[in-house]
């Protein structure tokens, strides 16, 4: 971790997340490519399981988070492709930005995109699968914690694979096994929210919080080294 103060850390993080949101505003890649992909995944799940509406309803939490996970891969590839293009990685190294701030900014930008994606997917599962959640607080809390974890671990593996020639195929191979706990815990918490059994769900939510905090801490301390190696 660099020797930046907390104020410079958060200032740099705000600068990076502002830049990433502006990049999306200018390019609309998430809006025009990742979001339609996520909705398409939901629709294809519906086509595959449509003969039995009951199974579709029961599988909603898992299908939702699988769609989020697949979309996360695309969002991460986009987020780190722009940092690897045309000498930007060197410019970041020379910029004076705190590497931990860059990590937090990248993670926050990815998290904002994922939360918007989850909102649309939430409407999608209600519309396509005909399911209604009963624990909105647990649902929202799960989304926040799972998204923080996905964004943190995604930023770590995103920068790690950014400088590699095979990054497009390598990132899913590296990331998917690591985020399996997020998939399991978020699915279980969502299932509890849909089944009116929130007590069990909050335990899974706790696991998501621990995962997110763990990878945020690792990212803050390790991002400088990973940026150097990318």
């Amino acid at each position: 971790m660099s020797a930046g103060t907390p104020s410079t850390l958060f200032r740099d993080a705000a600068l990076v997340v502002g830049k990433d949101l502006r990049l999306e505003w200018r390019s609309r890649v998430i809006t025009s490519q990742v979001l339609p992909f996520a909705v398409l995944v939901l629709v294809l799940f519906a086509f595959a399981l449509d003969p039995d509406r009951r199974i579709l309803g029961e599988a909603t939490p898992g299908l939702f988070w699988l769609a989020v996970l697949f979309s996360t891969l695309l969002a991460l590839q986009r987020a780190f492709a722009v940092e690897a293009a045309d000498g930007v990685t060197d410019a970041l190294r020379l910029s004076g930005l705190d590497p931990a701030g860059i990590f937090l900014g990248k993670a926050a930008g990815i998290a904002v995109h994922l939360l918007a994606l989850e909102l649309v997917l939430g409407v999608g599962v209600t519309f396509f699968y005909g399911t209604t959640p009963h624990g909105p607080v647990l649902l929202v809390a799960t989304c926040l914690a799972a998204t923080a974890g996905l964004a943190a671990v995604g930023s770590l593996y995103g920068v790690l694979s950014a400088g590699m020639r095979a990054r497009d195929t390598l990132l899913p191979l590296l990331l998917l096994p690591v985020v399996a706990p997020v998939l399991i815990a978020a699915t279980q918490a969502f299932a509890a929210a849909y089944d009116r059994s929130s007590g069990e769900g909050w335990r899974w939510f706790g696991l998501l919080v621990v995962f997110a905090l763990l990878y945020l801490a690792i990212g803050i301390f390790a991002f400088e080294t990973l940026l150097e190696e990318s």
Partner: peptide
Amino acid sequence: RAVRHRVGLLGHASGLYEDL
């Protein structure tokens, strides 16, 4: 790494974000 923020490097690559 300590010297980096004090120098400016104009290389062959632009170091710019294409979509911005």
